[in-house]
């Protein structure tokens, strides 16, 4: 009888120690993780973005995204644009005529729209539904023009993968995590007056 009571007591003690250890472990893990979260910043979410000053418009963005249609699109900083008649981001290097004929356009999907503003200026806008993010216009604009066309991850399309597939394939390491409340790295935040 007393032997059984001993066993019972031992079991009870064992269970108590076990529970204490479990609670301590749980508190430890929870505390450590919470500490990591608050150590710097408020534990805000991150999203992926392209640093346009590093981007070389290699074309990997168009094909390495996990989405069938890449979340990367050409973005236009209108405040930087020269509004050229001969836009090297819009026209083929040797256009037959400076009009919106398909044979003159650089964009393989016809995603850039050209509208007349006033002599001699034209405005160029991106049709995101057609843009695949190949960066061909970005190269054309950067090579000769002001560089107002550049690639950005469009966050209404991005899946926010934990590891961005395009970032792995980016030859210039232009992808980086940015805070989700400042999700774009635009070339020019405000047009200078």
């Amino acid at each position: 009888m007393s032997h059984q009571q001993d066993i019972k007591r031992i079991m009870h003690r064992r269970a108590f120690v076990g529970n204490a250890l479990r609670v301590a472990g749980a508190l430890g893990i929870g505390g450590a993780v919470a500490g990591l979260t608050v150590r710097k910043g408020e534990g805000r979410p991150w999203v992926w973005q392209i640093d346009p000053s590093k981007c070389i418009a290699c074309g990997n963005c168009a094909t390495h995204c996990v989405l069938d249609e890449s979340a990367v699109k050409c973005t236009h900083s209108f405040g930087m644009c020269g509004y050229c008649d001969l836009c090297t981001g819009y026209f083929h290097p040797e256009p037959i005529a400076l009009n919106s004929g398909a044979e003159n356009q650089l964009c393989p999907t016809g995603a850039i729209r050209r509208t007349f503003v006033e002599d001699p200026y034209f405005e160029y806008t991106i049709d995101e539904r057609l843009c695949i993010g190949c960066g061909k216009c970005v190269k054309g604009c950067n090579t000769f023009g002001n560089g107002s066309l550049f690639l950005q991850v469009r966050h209404d399309r991005c899946q926010h993968c934990n590891e961005c597939s395009i970032a792995i394939a980016c030859p210039s390491q232009a992808y980086r995590r940015v805070p989700a409340d400042q999700p774009y790295l635009l070339k020019l935040r405000e047009a200078k007056g």
Partner: peptide, 17 residues
Amino acid sequence: WLGEHGSGLSDSFKYDL
């Protein structure tokens, strides 16, 4: 993964001077 074989886009998507 590393994009070593390029983007795989056809030549019409490449800017070539």
